[in-house]
């Protein structure tokens, strides 16, 4: 079986220089590490948002970006990748209400309502983003990413603004949604606990320069529950 996630990229952006390889058979991968090493930039490269990124990106057997020496097809633009990208700040479109934010990518009203219900924000559907708290905005952004993730879900510190109880419930709901859809997840967090909550099969640590090293399950406070 082909690896769900198979990435080998190089990237320079300002003072940041990344050379990262991530080849994993797991469906849920977490990347942890200190701030500033390039975790967020790596995630953006998977979404196709880093034009300077060179190298192979293959997700679920689809080649999104060919290795430089392969002579293969061109880089697939972000709007054709089918990724659900949830950036660190929620980035809800300020001029649209919650429902319009959820349906921006073409989701039906029913699907949007269902996703909102799962992450506990279905009571906010007619609100404008500026009337949401930080935690509420984060849950709406998560629902929007879930709706858009047809081939890959990219979560950047998705639970940071949530309180302890809700953090667990939202993580479980997200895990259920991933199981139903069969979409792989790449999670970025500086908190290894998030990796456990979201049931990540593998935890990788990013070092200075973008090098990724797989940690043993024990080092990441346990793997996915059987």
């Amino acid at each position: 079986m082909k690896s769900p996630i198979d990435v080998a990229i190089r990237l320079r952006k300002g003072t940041l220089s990344l050379e990262s390889r991530l080849r994993s058979g797991a469906m849920r991968v977490a990347i942890v590490g200190p701030s500033g090493v390039g975790k967020t930039t790596f995630l953006r490269a998977l979404a196709g948002l880093e034009p300077g990124a060179r190298g192979r990106v293959a997700i679920g057997g689809e080649l999104w970006s060919p290795a430089p020496d392969s002579g293969a097809s061109r880089v697939r633009p972000p709007w054709l990748r089918g990724v659900g990208w949830m950036p660190q700040s929620a980035l809800l479109f300020p001029h649209l209400d919650v429902m319009a934010n959820l349906r921006f990518g073409g989701a039906t009203r029913e699907a949007a309502r269902d996703a909102a219900r799962r992450v506990e924000c279905d009571h906010l559907l007619d609100r404008r983003p500026r009337h949401l708290s930080g935690g509420e905005a984060q849950r709406v952004a998560l629902a929007r990413a879930l709706l858009a993730a047809r081939r890959l879900l990219l979560l950047d510190e998705p639970l940071a603004a949530l309180d302890e109880d809700r953090r667990a419930r939202v993580a479980v709901a997200t895990g259920e949604w991933l199981d139903e859809s069969g979409v792989p997840l790449v999670l970025v967090s500086h908190d290894a606990g998030d990796a456990a909550r979201l049931g990540c099969d593998e935890v990788w640590r990013m070092w200075e320069g973008g090098r990724l090293e797989r940690l043993h399950p024990t080092a990441a406070e346990g793997g996915r529950a059987p």
Binding site: R44, A47, G48, L49, P77, P78, W79, R81, G82, V83, G84, W85, P87, L91, F93, F104, G105, G106, R144, A148
Partner: peptide, 15 residues
Amino acid sequence: VDPRFEELAWTLGAP
């Protein structure tokens, strides 16, 4: 306008 709003729109399928 934060350029990430547009990037986000791209990932949501809007060219």
